[in-house]
Amino acid sequence: MRDVLIALAPAEILSVLVYGWSELLVLAVGITSCVLLEWAITKWMLRKPSTIGDLSAAVTGLLLVMNVPSSTPWWIVVIGSIVAIGIAKMSFGGIGQNIFNPAITARVFLLVSFPRQLTDWSVSQGFIHATDAISGATLLGVYGEGGMEALTAIGYPENHKMFMDIGGSAGEISAALLLLGFIYLLIRKVVKPWIPLSIIGTVFVVSTIFYFVNPEVYTGPVFNLLTGGVLLGAFFMATDYVTSPMSTLGGVIYGIGIGVILMMIRYFGSYPEGVSFAILIMNCFVPLFNRWFHQKKFGRA
Protein backbone atom coordinates (compact mmCIF):
# COMPACT_ATOMS: atom_id res chain seq x y z
CA MET A 1 0.00 0.00 0.00
CA ARG A 2 2.92 2.32 0.68
CA ASP A 3 4.03 1.78 -2.89
CA VAL A 4 0.62 2.89 -4.16
CA LEU A 5 0.90 6.08 -2.11
CA ILE A 6 4.36 6.71 -3.55
CA ALA A 7 3.10 6.05 -7.07
CA LEU A 8 0.20 8.46 -6.69
CA ALA A 9 2.31 11.16 -5.07
CA PRO A 10 3.80 12.90 -8.18
CA ALA A 11 0.42 13.54 -9.79
CA GLU A 12 -1.08 14.74 -6.53
CA ILE A 13 1.88 17.01 -5.77
CA LEU A 14 1.54 18.60 -9.19
CA SER A 15 -2.14 19.09 -8.63
CA VAL A 16 -1.48 20.78 -5.27
CA LEU A 17 1.02 23.04 -6.97
CA VAL A 18 -1.40 23.92 -9.74
CA TYR A 19 -4.60 24.26 -7.74
CA GLY A 20 -3.12 25.73 -4.59
CA TRP A 21 -4.60 25.94 -1.11
CA SER A 22 -8.01 24.58 -2.05
CA GLU A 23 -6.52 21.29 -3.23
CA LEU A 24 -4.28 21.09 -0.18
CA LEU A 25 -7.36 21.46 2.03
CA VAL A 26 -9.24 18.75 0.13
CA LEU A 27 -6.21 16.47 0.38
CA ALA A 28 -5.78 17.00 4.10
CA VAL A 29 -9.48 16.54 4.85
CA GLY A 30 -9.81 13.50 2.59
CA ILE A 31 -6.93 11.48 4.01
CA THR A 32 -7.47 12.49 7.63
CA SER A 33 -11.17 11.75 7.60
CA CYS A 34 -10.70 8.34 5.93
CA VAL A 35 -8.01 7.25 8.36
CA LEU A 36 -9.81 8.62 11.43
CA LEU A 37 -13.06 6.98 10.37
CA GLU A 38 -11.47 3.58 9.89
CA TRP A 39 -9.77 3.88 13.24
CA ALA A 40 -13.03 4.88 14.93
CA ILE A 41 -15.03 2.10 13.32
CA THR A 42 -12.54 -0.62 14.21
CA LYS A 43 -12.29 0.70 17.76
CA TRP A 44 -15.90 1.34 18.68
CA MET A 45 -18.08 -0.60 16.26
CA LEU A 46 -16.16 -3.72 15.23
CA ARG A 47 -14.01 -3.83 18.36
CA LYS A 48 -11.16 -5.31 16.39
CA PRO A 49 -7.49 -4.35 16.24
CA SER A 50 -7.04 -1.25 14.15
CA THR A 51 -6.15 -1.70 10.49
CA ILE A 52 -5.01 1.82 9.69
CA GLY A 53 -1.41 0.65 9.89
CA ASP A 54 -1.75 -1.09 6.53
CA LEU A 55 -2.27 2.36 4.92
CA SER A 56 -5.24 1.14 2.90
CA ALA A 57 -7.46 3.86 4.39
CA ALA A 58 -4.89 6.47 3.40
CA VAL A 59 -4.84 5.10 -0.15
CA THR A 60 -8.64 5.24 -0.30
CA GLY A 61 -8.56 8.82 0.96
CA LEU A 62 -5.94 9.86 -1.56
CA LEU A 63 -7.79 8.21 -4.45
CA LEU A 64 -11.02 9.89 -3.40
CA VAL A 65 -9.28 13.26 -3.31
CA MET A 66 -7.79 12.68 -6.72
CA ASN A 67 -11.23 11.83 -8.04
CA VAL A 68 -12.96 15.05 -7.08
CA PRO A 69 -12.31 18.62 -8.27
CA SER A 70 -10.04 20.82 -6.21
CA SER A 71 -12.91 23.18 -5.57
CA THR A 72 -14.99 20.57 -3.69
CA PRO A 73 -16.16 21.89 -0.30
CA TRP A 74 -14.52 20.13 2.62
CA TRP A 75 -17.79 18.79 4.03
CA ILE A 76 -18.52 16.98 0.78
CA VAL A 77 -15.13 15.33 1.04
CA VAL A 78 -16.01 14.20 4.56
CA ILE A 79 -19.29 12.73 3.31
CA GLY A 80 -17.29 10.98 0.60
CA SER A 81 -15.00 9.49 3.24
CA ILE A 82 -17.98 8.24 5.22
CA VAL A 83 -19.35 6.52 2.12
CA ALA A 84 -15.96 5.12 1.13
CA ILE A 85 -14.82 3.81 4.49
CA GLY A 86 -18.08 3.45 6.36
CA ILE A 87 -20.33 2.02 3.68
CA ALA A 88 -18.18 0.59 0.90
CA LYS A 89 -15.41 -0.86 3.04
CA MET A 90 -16.10 -1.45 6.72
CA SER A 91 -19.72 -2.54 6.45
CA PHE A 92 -18.54 -5.45 4.31
CA GLY A 93 -16.07 -6.46 7.01
CA GLY A 94 -13.09 -4.23 6.34
CA ILE A 95 -10.09 -4.68 4.13
CA GLY A 96 -10.23 -7.63 1.79
CA GLN A 97 -13.98 -8.13 2.09
CA ASN A 98 -15.44 -5.26 0.08
CA ILE A 99 -17.01 -5.91 -3.32
CA PHE A 100 -16.80 -2.37 -4.64
CA ASN A 101 -13.81 -0.10 -4.78
CA PRO A 102 -14.38 2.29 -1.83
CA ALA A 103 -12.96 5.42 -3.48
CA ILE A 104 -15.02 4.95 -6.63
CA THR A 105 -18.18 4.16 -4.70
CA ALA A 106 -17.71 7.42 -2.81
CA ARG A 107 -17.03 9.37 -5.99
CA VAL A 108 -20.14 8.04 -7.69
CA PHE A 109 -22.19 8.72 -4.58
CA LEU A 110 -20.96 12.30 -4.50
CA LEU A 111 -21.43 12.75 -8.23
CA VAL A 112 -25.09 11.80 -8.13
CA SER A 113 -25.77 13.55 -4.81
CA PHE A 114 -23.90 16.79 -5.42
CA PRO A 115 -23.68 17.05 -9.22
CA ARG A 116 -23.13 20.80 -9.18
CA GLN A 117 -20.20 20.81 -6.77
CA LEU A 118 -18.63 17.73 -8.33
CA THR A 119 -18.55 19.26 -11.79
CA ASP A 120 -17.43 22.68 -10.67
CA TRP A 121 -14.13 22.98 -12.43
CA SER A 122 -13.49 26.58 -11.42
CA VAL A 123 -9.90 27.03 -10.49
CA SER A 124 -8.25 28.98 -7.73
CA GLN A 125 -4.80 30.42 -8.04
CA GLY A 126 -2.15 27.78 -7.53
CA PHE A 127 1.44 27.91 -6.33
CA ILE A 128 2.77 27.76 -9.85
CA HIS A 129 1.28 29.38 -12.88
CA ALA A 130 -0.60 26.88 -14.98
CA THR A 131 -1.07 27.15 -18.69
CA ASP A 132 -4.28 28.39 -20.18
CA ALA A 133 -5.63 24.90 -20.74
CA ILE A 134 -7.11 24.71 -17.25
CA SER A 135 -10.37 26.32 -17.97
CA GLY A 136 -13.78 26.23 -16.43
CA ALA A 137 -14.90 23.06 -18.14
CA THR A 138 -13.22 19.80 -18.97
CA LEU A 139 -12.80 18.70 -22.54
CA LEU A 140 -15.09 15.77 -21.85
CA GLY A 141 -17.64 18.11 -20.34
CA VAL A 142 -17.51 20.31 -23.41
CA TYR A 143 -17.92 17.28 -25.64
CA GLY A 144 -20.76 15.92 -23.54
CA GLU A 145 -22.61 19.21 -23.77
CA GLY A 146 -22.05 20.29 -27.32
CA GLY A 147 -20.44 17.43 -29.18
CA MET A 148 -17.53 17.70 -31.56
CA GLU A 149 -18.42 21.22 -32.70
CA ALA A 150 -18.12 22.64 -29.23
CA LEU A 151 -14.75 20.99 -28.83
CA THR A 152 -13.46 22.54 -32.04
CA ALA A 153 -14.83 25.86 -30.92
CA ILE A 154 -12.57 25.99 -27.86
CA GLY A 155 -9.57 25.23 -29.97
CA TYR A 156 -9.13 21.50 -29.54
CA PRO A 157 -6.74 19.94 -30.31
CA GLU A 158 -4.21 22.66 -31.06
CA ASN A 159 -4.35 24.44 -27.71
CA HIS A 160 -4.11 21.38 -25.50
CA LYS A 161 -0.98 19.66 -24.44
CA MET A 162 -2.13 16.20 -23.53
CA PHE A 163 0.51 15.06 -21.11
CA MET A 164 0.36 18.02 -18.80
CA ASP A 165 -2.53 19.91 -17.23
CA ILE A 166 -5.50 18.29 -18.85
CA GLY A 167 -7.94 19.72 -16.38
CA GLY A 168 -10.74 17.99 -14.50
CA SER A 169 -10.52 16.18 -11.19
CA ALA A 170 -7.40 16.80 -9.18
CA GLY A 171 -5.77 13.50 -10.02
CA GLU A 172 -6.40 13.70 -13.72
CA ILE A 173 -4.06 16.60 -14.13
CA SER A 174 -1.13 14.84 -15.72
CA ALA A 175 -1.19 11.68 -17.76
CA ALA A 176 2.61 11.62 -17.77
CA LEU A 177 2.93 11.60 -13.98
CA LEU A 178 0.23 8.95 -13.63
CA LEU A 179 2.11 6.81 -16.11
CA LEU A 180 5.29 7.38 -14.15
CA GLY A 181 3.56 6.21 -10.98
CA PHE A 182 2.21 3.15 -12.73
CA ILE A 183 5.63 2.24 -14.08
CA TYR A 184 6.93 2.47 -10.51
CA LEU A 185 4.23 0.01 -9.41
CA LEU A 186 5.14 -2.33 -12.26
CA ILE A 187 8.82 -2.22 -11.36
CA ARG A 188 8.03 -2.90 -7.72
CA LYS A 189 5.85 -5.80 -8.92
CA VAL A 190 2.89 -4.46 -6.98
CA VAL A 191 0.49 -4.75 -9.90
CA LYS A 192 0.42 -6.67 -13.14
CA PRO A 193 -0.07 -4.83 -16.42
CA TRP A 194 -2.92 -6.94 -17.83
CA ILE A 195 -5.92 -5.04 -16.47
CA PRO A 196 -4.71 -1.51 -17.41
CA LEU A 197 -3.50 -2.74 -20.78
CA SER A 198 -6.82 -4.34 -21.61
CA ILE A 199 -8.76 -1.23 -20.53
CA ILE A 200 -6.53 1.09 -22.53
CA GLY A 201 -6.53 -1.28 -25.49
CA THR A 202 -10.32 -1.52 -25.47
CA VAL A 203 -10.75 2.23 -25.20
CA PHE A 204 -8.31 2.64 -28.06
CA VAL A 205 -9.98 0.05 -30.30
CA VAL A 206 -13.56 1.16 -29.59
CA SER A 207 -12.85 4.84 -30.09
CA THR A 208 -10.79 4.15 -33.23
CA ILE A 209 -13.70 2.26 -34.77
CA PHE A 210 -16.19 4.99 -33.92
CA TYR A 211 -13.78 7.72 -34.99
CA PHE A 212 -13.32 6.13 -38.39
CA VAL A 213 -17.06 5.62 -38.77
CA ASN A 214 -17.76 9.29 -38.19
CA PRO A 215 -15.03 11.66 -37.02
CA GLU A 216 -17.54 14.50 -37.06
CA VAL A 217 -19.51 13.03 -34.15
CA TYR A 218 -17.14 10.79 -32.24
CA THR A 219 -13.92 11.76 -30.51
CA GLY A 220 -10.74 9.93 -31.41
CA PRO A 221 -8.60 7.43 -29.49
CA VAL A 222 -5.93 9.81 -28.24
CA PHE A 223 -8.54 12.19 -26.91
CA ASN A 224 -10.33 9.39 -25.12
CA LEU A 225 -7.22 7.91 -23.60
CA LEU A 226 -5.79 11.10 -22.22
CA THR A 227 -8.88 12.89 -20.98
CA GLY A 228 -10.88 12.24 -17.87
CA GLY A 229 -10.07 9.46 -15.48
CA VAL A 230 -9.14 6.67 -17.90
CA LEU A 231 -5.51 6.53 -16.88
CA LEU A 232 -6.15 7.17 -13.18
CA GLY A 233 -8.89 4.55 -13.20
CA ALA A 234 -7.01 1.98 -15.27
CA PHE A 235 -3.72 2.31 -13.43
CA PHE A 236 -4.80 2.74 -9.84
CA MET A 237 -8.44 1.86 -9.31
CA ALA A 238 -9.25 -1.01 -11.63
CA THR A 239 -6.09 -2.71 -10.35
CA ASP A 240 -7.21 -2.67 -6.71
CA TYR A 241 -6.43 -6.20 -5.49
CA VAL A 242 -9.62 -6.70 -3.57
CA THR A 243 -12.04 -5.66 -6.28
CA SER A 244 -10.33 -7.03 -9.38
CA PRO A 245 -10.15 -10.63 -10.65
CA MET A 246 -7.14 -12.71 -9.65
CA SER A 247 -6.49 -14.63 -12.84
CA THR A 248 -4.94 -13.09 -15.94
CA LEU A 249 -7.82 -14.14 -18.17
CA GLY A 250 -10.38 -12.81 -15.70
CA GLY A 251 -8.43 -9.57 -15.51
CA VAL A 252 -8.40 -9.16 -19.27
CA ILE A 253 -12.14 -9.73 -19.56
CA TYR A 254 -12.70 -7.37 -16.64
CA GLY A 255 -10.58 -4.73 -18.39
CA ILE A 256 -12.37 -5.14 -21.70
CA GLY A 257 -15.70 -4.82 -19.90
CA ILE A 258 -14.60 -1.58 -18.25
CA GLY A 259 -13.33 -0.21 -21.56
CA VAL A 260 -16.54 -0.98 -23.45
CA ILE A 261 -18.89 0.33 -20.76
CA LEU A 262 -16.85 3.48 -20.33
CA MET A 263 -16.85 4.25 -24.05
CA MET A 264 -20.59 3.60 -24.30
CA ILE A 265 -21.22 6.06 -21.48
CA ARG A 266 -18.94 8.63 -23.06
CA TYR A 267 -20.52 8.36 -26.50
CA PHE A 268 -24.13 7.71 -25.63
CA GLY A 269 -24.65 8.34 -21.92
CA SER A 270 -25.90 11.43 -20.23
CA TYR A 271 -22.75 11.73 -18.13
CA PRO A 272 -19.66 13.09 -19.83
CA GLU A 273 -17.43 10.60 -18.00
CA GLY A 274 -17.97 6.91 -17.32
CA VAL A 275 -14.80 5.46 -15.78
CA SER A 276 -16.20 5.25 -12.27
CA PHE A 277 -19.47 3.72 -13.39
CA ALA A 278 -17.68 1.24 -15.62
CA ILE A 279 -15.38 0.09 -12.84
CA LEU A 280 -18.25 -0.19 -10.35
CA ILE A 281 -20.32 -2.24 -12.79
CA MET A 282 -17.44 -4.57 -13.53
CA ASN A 283 -16.68 -4.88 -9.79
CA CYS A 284 -19.96 -6.79 -9.53
CA PHE A 285 -18.63 -9.47 -11.87
CA VAL A 286 -15.37 -10.04 -10.04
CA PRO A 287 -16.58 -12.82 -7.72
CA LEU A 288 -18.00 -14.55 -10.77
CA PHE A 289 -14.73 -14.22 -12.69
CA ASN A 290 -12.84 -15.53 -9.70
CA ARG A 291 -15.11 -18.54 -9.68
CA TRP A 292 -14.85 -19.17 -13.41
CA PHE A 293 -11.24 -18.48 -14.21
CA HIS A 294 -8.38 -20.16 -12.41
CA GLN A 295 -4.73 -20.18 -13.20
CA LYS A 296 -3.28 -23.15 -15.02
CA LYS A 297 -2.30 -25.89 -12.63
CA PHE A 298 0.91 -27.84 -12.90
CA GLY A 299 0.44 -31.20 -14.59
CA ARG A 300 -3.25 -30.76 -15.26
CA ALA A 301 -3.16 -29.51 -18.84
Binding site: D54, G96, Y241, V242, M246, K297
Partner: peptide
Amino acid sequence: ASSCIRCGRCADACPMGLE
Protein backbone atom coordinates in the same frame (compact mmCIF):
# COMPACT_ATOMS: atom_id res chain seq x y z
CA ALA B 1 -1.65 -12.25 10.42
CA SER B 2 -3.84 -9.62 8.82
CA SER B 3 -6.65 -9.91 6.28
CA CYS B 4 -6.24 -11.37 2.80
CA ILE B 5 -6.55 -8.65 0.18
CA ARG B 6 -6.34 -11.11 -2.71
CA CYS B 7 -3.07 -9.72 -3.99
CA GLY B 8 -2.44 -13.11 -5.55
CA ARG B 9 1.22 -13.42 -4.57
CA CYS B 10 0.64 -16.87 -3.14
CA ALA B 11 -0.92 -17.99 -6.41
CA ASP B 12 2.03 -16.52 -8.33
CA ALA B 13 4.49 -18.23 -6.02
CA CYS B 14 2.85 -21.67 -6.02
CA PRO B 15 4.99 -23.96 -8.18
CA MET B 16 2.01 -26.28 -8.64
CA GLY B 17 -0.24 -23.51 -9.97
CA LEU B 18 -2.66 -23.79 -7.07
CA GLU B 19 -4.44 -20.89 -5.43
